[in-house]
Design a protein around this nucleic acid. Structure first.
Lengths: 271, 271
DNA sequence: AGCTCTTATGAATCATTGA
DNA sequence: GTCAATGATTCATAAGAGC
């Protein structure tokens, strides 16, 4: 059993990860504080400083991640003064120089995006999810994220709300397995690199909760039961809740004690 | 009437555009030969050489584009040796340095993408469409690309909810706001920056034809009737056909005489 | 079951003003 | 100039209740 396991730690992941065992993590799933967003919550990282702020931390990610592990990064640049920021591109290229292999970019297409109308752009309805690895060969379990084809299933599963999951869990006790079993013999298909998910509804006491279906997808895709999932910017705890529900171990880190409290509370209440 | 108008020209756009009038083009829509793709057709541009190959040509684009014009670039990096190439990111950043303003990235989500299965990734079902301009203010006609709205609007408008009324009262302070009034009779909605278009079916005698819906969308969005649309890598002629169908002028350029023949044939047959 | 109606809400962006 | 803060403006959808 790893030293730090199934806990939420308050602190900067830069220092906290120093104490975590080398090559002990199977998957890192995270959504860092975006540059110029969450200024009140995180103090704000200027877009020009974002890459240099991130790199020392991603170096620690390299340290604790197993050779066959994956690093999933959810991020999206904003628009300022009529132009899109370029720091996300700069970050990806810097991560490649740091030793990461950029395997894929998934698109998280948000069904319900924020309102607004502007003279020069439409509403932003997608975010990027980058997949990095340490090696060309890595663990991937594609069968565990197969989606059913056909209308009846599409409408049932296009949105995996926490509530749906809870219902399935309580009925069967093991999350997805029952559903998967039900679909055997029906038309199943592999997903593509575009994910259609609604943003989470419901108050999570955190300004930027991503839908649980997002970590859920990548945890099932890149880990097996009992593996360790790390989120170095745990926020409201969604990644940890998802890992726990799927029978994985979790390690959550956040610099704000307030966030850690929210995450711990959600883990206790399993929601 | 511009000198070069409603024609397809065989040649390298680098030299051809030298003869085109300064600031005469309202919109550039193109899908360049991707690096390492279409090697037989174009002789192949190595990923490492792609940016330096492109930049002299995009400089000519700056020359012929009107100050209020837009440049729409459809491109997607491939995967090699298990990793995504970075030349698209490098190109975007180089274009910014060249003077272009990066306004937006649209995601063209391909409904019916190519089948296939690989050990380390799923099927690639999106392409990038970058929107660049010369100025912060540019021509944009958002109303011309509105899409049909769902049924929900009708019922809502029949009987304005108490909450809608309250929200607008507090916002405006005088009973009915004009916001709600704007919705009455509206059955169309603005799109987002994720476009759901099917890929073209049917052989167009060209290996990388994009669906006509793609240039159609951007031509309607960024030009009005009679404007001039340029595609410096016209390929099978889709951009020109779309422009003609929408009552715009077109100028198509391709280095391969074979492509120009196909484009001319399609224009004549209007398909 | 299916239909109608109600409610909730999401990492937004731009123009303007003032320091 | 440049930068920061503030206010104005703005949709489309899912899910649930009720009939």
């Amino acid at each position: 059993m790893p030293k730090y396991c199934n806990i939420i730690i308050t602190g900067d992941c830069l220092s906290v990860l120093q104490k975590v065992d080398l090559s002990s993590v199977d998957l890192i799933v995270t959504s860092p504080p975006y540059a110029e967003k969450r200024i009140k919550a995180y103090g704000g990282i200027h877009p020009d400083k974002f890459v240099e702020w991130f790199l020392p931390r991603s170096e620690k990610f390299l340290r604790v991640l197993k050779p066959t592990g994956s690093f999933i990064l959810n991020i999206k640049e904003g628009a300022h003064n009529g132009q899109r920021q370029t720091y996300v591109m700069k970050l990806v290229m810097a991560l490649c120089r740091q030793g990461w292999l950029w395997v894929e970019e998934y698109i998280w297409c948000k069904k319900n995006c924020a309102p607004g109308k502007w003279p020069n752009r439409f509403r932003d309805s997608f975010e990027r999810v980058y997949h990095f690895t340490k090696q060309k060969k890595f663990s991937m379990y594609q069968e565990s994220v197969m989606v059913p084809m056909g209308d009846w299933a599409k409408s049932r599963l296009k949105n995996l709300s926490a509530r749906d999951r809870r219902r399935d869990d309580s009925a069967v006790g093991s999350g997805f397995s029952k559903n998967i079993a039900n679909w055997v013999g029906r038309d199943m298909a592999y997903p593509t690199n575009v994910l259609h998910l609604a943003t989470e509804c419901g108050n999570k006491d955190h300004p930027a909760a991503f839908p649980i279906a997002l970590p859920d997808f990548f945890i099932r895709l890149f880990t097996k039961t009992g593996d360790l999932v790390l989120d170095p910017f745990i926020g409201s705890g969604t990644t940890a809740v998802s890992a726990k529900q799927l029978g994985r171990k979790y390690l959550g880190i956040d610099i704000l004690a307030k966030n850690c409290l929210v995450a711990k509370k959600r883990l206790k209440e399993d929601r």
